[in-house]
Design a binder for these strands. Structure first.
Lengths: 214, 214
DNA sequence: TAGATTGTTAATCGATTAACAATC
DNA sequence: TAGATTGTTAATCGATTAACAATC
């Protein structure tokens, strides 16, 4: 069955939402409960879950602990992932320093750069290797995901190296569309700022963009 | 007229794509040219642009420079934006150090935290103020956007402070859905890793999740 | 049993794409 | 004029939501 992309993303939201309920000592929740916290419709929650099985009890709702472990299995949160960051510049270093990743079992085990100055150093305790060592280290350290945090001009080339190395997926922070045969998730920070800028302008009373006014 | 959200986001992509064409010395491009680089359909490009006006010439395509400035006007890239980062922890500091923002005229002019240890210091040259000074500094420095980079537990409260301060929009890096009356753009890094994890698992030959197999 | 809530179908909504007349 | 490409309409596709029978 074809799973909608937004459903997969929401699964992650459900997971966190349920984790919070668990912390609060709640044992059973309804689709309505979850939907309220996430500002969506309860039928959306039920529909999303129904792609993967029947996890609830009619009249009762969902067992929080059980649903957490089901979702964890589905989105692969019950396993640890070894991650390489390609590009030891500002953004790459920032991600290496970001504890949110390790917290969710995405372990950054290596960084790669083509700058010999950086190779051999450590950033946030993570060793920086030369990009030519990629293939070897991927096998040695069992790396499954790559973060691409290199300049736009190098991104496509790096993506090809990553794919050849046997890495299985990419989180792409560069602002271009990568052409690969492995899954890519784009995180485009600047684009988010630009989208916000548009929304602010659209909201503002003095508005030159006549066309969009309702 | 109602503009689809994905259209607004693609406008930013068009802008960058056109900037590249301009650098390459290209004066006219067709919707096909743009679509090819972004891996989308040419009719999508034309449809998106048509929400805002008629920018092309039949038989010829679009004048690159002209279209760049039209899109810049629409998405507010032709103006500078003053930005505050709330939360001077790992993520906040990383964003302060990230030159990609200033490059796109999003100027981080202040950071805020509730930790008195951090207040008065500078991070990447940007002064850190106590959160209680928010209202005053927003006026003083003409801040229009806030980045929320505080822990989940504080995010909703901070969002309310931000809204009251007169800031017009939020880029939210915390993993919760904020309830505000101003526009919010969510950047959920962990969710992107989780979505990638799902896609890798789905692709892999040994797959316990029978339901999703085609 | 009565009340609650699921899982699922069908209806609706929104976004993408194909097709083509208009026109440079 | 002939060829190319736009702007726009209509068709298609995909995702969300409402509704409700099933059932705890």
């Amino acid at each position: 069955m074809k799973i909608p992309k937004p459903t997969v993303r929401r699964l992650g939201l459900y997971y966190r939402c349920l984790a919070r309920y668990k912390e609060e000592g709640v044992n059973f929740v309804s689709s309505q409960d979850i939907a309220d916290r996430l500002n969506i419709k309860p039928s959306q929650v039920r529909k999303d879950l129904s792609y993967f099985g029947e996890f609830g009890k009619r009249g009762l709702g969902y067992n929080v602990s059980k649903l957490i472990s089901e979702i964890a299995r589905i989105i692969g949160v019950n396993k640890e992932w070894n991650v390489a960051i390609i590009g030891a510049g500002n953004l790459g270093s920032a991600l290496a320093n970001y504890p949110g990743l390790a917290k969710h079992k995405f372990n950054v085990v290596a960084m790669f750069d083509n700058d010999r100055q950086k190779v051999g150093k450590k950033i946030a305790g993570i060793p920086v290797f030369h990009i030519s060592e990629l293939n070897q280290k991927v096998k040695e350290l069992n790396i499954e995901m790559a973060v691409i945090a290199v300049p736009e001009s190098a991104a496509q080339y790096v993506a090809e190296l990553v794919e050849e190395s046997g890495i299985k997926g990419i989180v792409n922070f560069s602002p271009i569309k990568l052409r690969t045969n492995i899954p890519v998730e784009d995180v485009d920070i600047t684009l988010s700022f630009e989208t916000l800028a548009y929304m602010i302008l659209k909201n503002s009373p003095v508005n030159i963009q006549q066309e969009e006014q309702v």
